[in-house]
């Protein structure tokens, strides 16, 4: 049984007014537990609308959202409990920090869940470990942290709710290459340690390719592709047609194929590219 199941989900903003904008249309999607799904698409492709449906921040105009086999809107009063099961961390999450100490801020979610002190402490410290926050920072004011540390503290605030599904919207936005690598490695590590399902929204195909097990491509409010990483990249030319930025290494292989070379385009890491080219020259194709 899939952990997330969307059936005919449609959402229209300002419905019934002349300003109505259809954000997602008739989405059917099943995501299995334990996947690390990269969600890719332009601004306005419906990515953000989609993920806000998964934790009940938005209600579909049509269709149903099922988490763990249960329709999350079956009982409106229980919608808050869905948010603990499906942790959603927004873009630039450091702008949500508000408490006096990092500890208290991370504890905000667990407290809202009604955990007792001992459970809260355990969750907070565990989340801080997941994101690699140094123990001496825990009792500092979140506003005294560096940019990267703030980002980590904010992500820990969502992880501390021990969600079965963790959704991260552009967790690497605004970070430099090293910071990006660290956050991605942290997410991969979190998934390995907890076994939870992780959804990662990103503009960067490189980022997604390096960590995800599956890729969901959104285009104009619809699911354009949902498949394993190699399968999605084998249609790299289609991705380019949608106007998505495929990694440079993939573009090189698209270019080589256009020059008449017999290569596949499902290459998305430099190491893989190197291996393919070497086997090509050894295979005596030239």
């Amino acid at each position: 049984m899939p952990i997330i199941s969307l059936k005919n989900v449609t959402h229209t903003y300002s419905e019934g007014t002349p300003l109505s904008v259809s954000a997602i249309k008739n989405i059917n999607l099943d995501i299995e537990a334990g996947e690390l799904v990269g969600i890719i698409g332009h601004t306005g492709s419906g990515k953000s609308t989609l993920i806000q449906h998964l934790n009940g921040l938005l209600k579909p105009n049509e269709g149903s959202v099922e988490i763990d086999g249960e329709n999350i809107w079956a009982d409106k009063k229980k919608i808050r409990s869905v948010r603990f099961k499906v942790g959603l961390c927004f873009q630039y999450p450091e702008y949500q920090l508000f408490e006096e100490t990092v500890y208290k801020d991370i504890a905000f979610g667990p407290k809202n869940m009604g955990m007792n002190e001992a459970q809260i402490k355990e969750s907070v410290l565990r989340a801080a470990r997941y994101v690699g926050l140094k123990p001496e920072l825990i009792n500092k004011s979140p506003f005294d942290l560096s940019g990267g540390e703030k980002r980590r503290a904010a992500i820990a605030g969502v992880m501390a709710m021990n969600p079965k599904i963790l959704i991260l919207d552009e967790p690497t936005a605004g970070l430099d290459p090293k910071g990006r690598q660290e956050i991605l490695a942290m997410i991969k590590d979190y998934k390995k340690k907890t076994g939870s399902t992780v959804l990662l929204v990103s503009h960067s195909m490189e980022d997604v390719a390096s960590v995800a097990t599956k890729i969901l491509v959104m285009n104009k409010g619809e699911v354009a592709m949902y498949d394993t990483v190699p399968n999605v990249f084998s249609k790299a030319d289609e991705l380019e047609k949608i106007g998505l930025n495929v990694p440079q290494i993939t573009r090189i292989f698209i270019g080589l194929r256009e020059k008449g070379l017999d290569v596949e385009t499902d290459v998305y890491t430099v190491a893989e590219g190197c291996r393919r080219l070497l086997s090509l020259s050894k295979g005596g194709n030239c």
């Binding site: 430099d176 290459p177 090293k178 910071g179 990694p247 440079q248 290494i249 090189i252 430099v270 190491a271 590219g273 190197c274 080219l277 070497l278 020259s281």
Partner: peptide
């Protein structure tokens, strides 16, 4: 120093390291 290089450059370097 925590920066990136283009994948095209990386690929050439990797091939070079393999004796190409």
């Amino acid at each position: 120093v925590g920066l990136d290089v283009p994948q095209a450059t990386q690929l050439a370097k990797a091939l070079k390291a393999q004796g190409v």
